[in-house]
């Protein structure tokens, strides 16, 4: 029972991170119909930006003002929003209307670029010119911005009073921030005129532009929002793991990929689907890790993807679209 509760709590925490990243994928896919491979690297940079902000403001130890977490969160969201805007402007907008495969390759190019720039921190040539990146291949510990005593700690099973269920402030932060942002996005997409414009462009960009919607502007805003959400996920990820590393084995790409799996499972292009899919992927991963084997957690996620693609390719909440000729 303890294991069950712990696994579900971890699952919800990890799942809400996936959901935040998945939202960026699904919004871009809904409007431009391509997988933005660079999104996982925006997520990575979000984590590093928040880390750099902490370093810049001198938040190194565990005791700091309550608003510190908020500063780091909003700062990195703003920086990644700007980054997402730039990427869309320079790399994707010139290819508007090009075959989808070209955009996909470009996205992979952007992803490779961001990822490998991150490996340069020990670069001698750049260091001579005083250029130092805040990120790199070496594991870096992230300052925890919240106290690390559990908020709640209780034993469920009276036979084992020492196996406790711990509710850490970090988990509350992760789940709280993620759900707040998702609620805001939900309001934005379904309750404002900007959201209506986004849904219109996603439904039919050409007709939307005839109705006076500035498609390019909507696309830009989508990228900014998606990247900001990824940055939030990056910040929360850093807080949860307390260690960041820019490894060459593509850890970040893998995380991003799982988030895209979440988007596909939920129904790609569907905002609510991305949230549900993210939570589902998180739960599958954590339950698999708790009850089967921790080493195979990637396997469960991708197996779930293949099963969903086989039986319900439009995703759990997606609508099957008949392709028009």
């Amino acid at each position: 029972m303890t294991k069950l509760l712990q696994a579900s709590m971890d699952g919800v925490a990890v799942g809400s991170l996936y959901a935040l990243i998945a939202l960026g994928y699904t919004m871009v896919y809904g409007i431009l119909k391509f997988i933005n491979f660079a999104h996982s690297d925006v997520f990575m940079l979000g984590a590093w930006f928040s880390f750099a902000i902490c370093g810049f403001l001198g938040y190194t130890t565990a005791d700091h003002p309550v608003y510190a977490a908020l500063v780091a969160l909003i700062g990195s969201m703003a920086m990644c929003g700007a980054l997402g805007f730039t990427i869309e402007r320079l790399a994707y907008r010139p290819l508007r209307g090009a075959p989808r495969i070209n955009v996909l390759i470009t996205a992979i190019g952007v992803s490779l670029l961001l990822e490998n720039v991150g490996q340069l921190n020990s670069n001698k040539f750049l260091a001579e010119y005083g250029i130092k990146f805040p990120f790199g291949t070496r594991p870096t510990s992230v300052p925890l911005l919240l106290p690390d005593q559990p908020l709640l700690s209780f034993a469920l099973d009276s036979a084992h009073p020492n196996t406790l269920v711990n509710v850490l402030p970090v988990d509350v932060l992760v789940i709280g921030v993620a759900f707040t942002l998702m609620a805001l996005l939900q309001y934005l997409v379904f309750g404002t005129s900007l959201g209506r414009a986004m849904r219109a462009v996603s439904y039919d960009a050409k007709t939307a532009s005839l109705m006076g919607i500035d498609v390019d502007r909507v696309v830009s805003i989508t990228f900014v929002i998606g990247s900001a959400l990824a940055a939030a996920a990056g910040f929360l990820y850093g807080q949860k793991l307390q260690s960041l590393r820019q490894s060459a084995d593509g850890l970040w790409v893998l995380l991003g990929l799982k988030a895209f799996v979440a988007a596909v499972v939920g129904g790609v292009g569907n905002v609510r689907g991305a949230m549900a899919g993210g939570l589902m992927i998180g739960l599958v991963e954590q339950f698999g890790a708790a009850y089967l084997s921790t080493n195979l957690r990637d396997l469960y996620v991708f197996s779930l993807l293949i099963v969903v693609l086989l039986f319900k390719p439009e995703g759990l909440l997606g609508k099957a679209v008949v392709e028009k000729v």
Binding site: I35, L254, L257, V261, L296, D298, V301, F302, L305, L309
Partner: peptide
């Protein structure tokens, strides 16, 4: 078989995921 029934970019995703599965399994 599962991915080629769908549109092109799903194949990209599934092949990338498959690559990871192969890698994880070989590591084990």
């Amino acid at each position: 078989l599962p991915s080629l029934r769908l549109r092109g970019d799903y194949l990209a995703l599934v092949t990338l995921g498959f690559g990871e599965i192969v890698r994880v399994l070989l590591m084990q």
